[in-house]
Design a protein around this nucleic acid. Structure first.
Length: 419
RNA sequence: GCCGCCAUCGUCUAGUGGUUAGGACACGAGGUUUUCAACCUUGUAACAGGGGUUCGAUUCCCCUUGGCGGUACCA
């Protein structure tokens, strides 16, 4: 895909757009018809519909009844020339079974008689998937058809088509479905979300890949964190599980947090860039983005949550004065402590204004003056963040810088005076 | 209905003819902690049921049950 979202040609077996391959499909269908492996079917949709209803009413296997199967080719051609509309169906053998070895399921066998004469070319001249997949895969040199389990029942049709063309069929591997909490196949119709939705929410691609890969595969030992390269290196069909996997959001969240934690500062900033721009917080020179993002990195699940969580750094904070008071403390103590703290902090040089510097200096100062959690630590943290729950006071102070931190402390003191 | 696939903790799974059935997520408890997270310790929790085969089955076979998928001029 290019920047405008248009699919561009990459391989050397193109064209890759179905409408541009119509001639190819027609050529192959013609061959099948000529060889007696496919036939024109003139049955109307209406007749087919009625047929199915009757079959259902009689509890029979539904499927095409073969009405047009034995129309001589010459006659069929005449009817086509006369303008009758038609489709082309493949002529499934009526006897025997189709057996194949699936790379994940092992031997699978289907009774041919029960398999429908599948439409391979529609009235509008387009192929159905069944024809297209076989023709394309062969022409494009596909060696392994790896697809979801929902295709397993139509595989005999594909194998039969390969035989009709005289081609070698690829290896088949039918992967178990990914299902939702209700254990149904994941689909938009059930309100399930797409990969793009997760990316938009700020899930990391590598976490998604790791998570999904482990839904149905694992290395056989207890390792869980795998990069794409490692997955490729260790992958083995025999280790794919056959049961459907439930898409478990909790586990994805865990993976995402693990990957988030491991991101380098630079990488983290880069990945949050777009999100920060959305919030109008990208071009603020005032703060060091690496430090800002590190503030909340270990407390959130997604990048979007991260950016939202650090909002308090950039925005004017508003909060209830009451939360400045620690649960085991009083308003007076908070006010008093905050006042003393502001005076003390004012004397600290900008050079010492780091998390570690503040921690040791303020710690020492508190000890000397018998101050602590209730009158300093808690109110300070709330004054800086405006939140009951937040990162620690010293790290926020460092990020905000001396000037902004002191401003927020003074605001808090005023708030306490007025309530 | 018919055809097919599948079946170990709630979830993802490891595992073997004889194991205290292991791990991870989630959950519970305790610890650490100025809050929330994080972190550490720890706990609860599974072989769907019934028949075989076998000295012995969670493991191999059959049946049942259950779940899912397919049954289109969709993919």
């Amino acid at each position: 895909m290019n920047k405008t979202g248009k699919i561009t040609q990459v391989g050397k077996n193109g064209p890759y757009i179905q409408s541009e391959r119509l001639k190819i499909y027609h050529k192959h269908v013609d061959k099948l018809v000529k060889d007696g492996y496919a036939y024109h079917c003139f049955c109307s949709k209406q007749r087919l519909e009625e047929l199915r209803q009757i079959q259902e009413a009689n509890k029979q296997t539904t499927g095409y009844d073969g009405t047009c199967r034995d129309i001589p080719l010459a006659e069929a051609r005449k009817r086509v020339a006369a303008g009758e509309s038609y489709v082309i169906r493949m002529k499934m053998p009526k006897t025997g079974t189709t057996k194949f070895t699936d790379l994940v399921r092992g031997e699978v066998e289907f009774t041919n008689e029960l398999i429908d004469d599948q439409v391979i070319l529609k009235t509008d001249g387009f192929p159905t998937y069944h024809l297209a997949v076989v023709v394309d895969d062969h022409l494009m040199g596909i060696t392994h058809a790896i697809r979801a389990e929902e295709w397993l029942p139509s595989t005999p049709k594909h194998i039969e088509l390969y035989k009709m063309f005289g081609w070698k069929s690829p290896e088949f591997a039918h992967l178990s479905l990914l299902v939702n909490e209700q254990r149904q196949k994941l689909s938009k119709r059930h309100g399930d979300v797409s990969v793009q939705d997760f990316i938009d929410k700020g899930y990391l691609p590598e976490a998604m890949i790791n998570f999904i890969a482990f839904l149905g595969w694992n290395p056989g030992d207890e390792r869980e964190l795998f990069s794409l390269d490692e997955l490729i290196k260790e992958f083995d069909f025999s280790k794919i599980s056959k049961a459907a996997g439930v898409f478990n959001l909790e586990k994805l969240n865990w993976f995402n947090r693990e990957y988030l934690k491991r991101l380098s500062d630079d990488d983290l900033v880069e990945r949050c860039k777009l999100l920060l721009m959305e919030h109008g917080q990208w071009n603020t020179r005032q703060y060091d983005m690496k430090k800002v993002l590190n503030l909340e990195k270990e407390r959130v699940i997604t990048l979007r949550e991260l950016v939202e969580a650090v909002g308090f750094v950039f925005e004017e904070i508003s909060y209830d004065a009451e939360i400045l008071v620690w649960k085991k403390s009083t308003k007076e103590e908070a006010k008093d402590g905050l006042g003393k703290l502001a005076d003390y902090l004012n004397k600290i040089s900008v050079r010492d204004w780091t998390k570690a510097g503040l921690e040791s200096k303020v710690g020492e100062w508190m000890q000397k003056n018998s101050l602590g959690i209730g009158n300093v630590m808690w109110p300070m943290r709330v004054a800086l963040s405006g939140q009951k729950n937040s990162p620690g006071p010293y790290e926020i102070a460092e990020v905000l810088g001396k000037e902004e931190a002191l401003k927020r402390l003074r605001t808090a003191i005023v708030k306490l005076l007025n309530c």
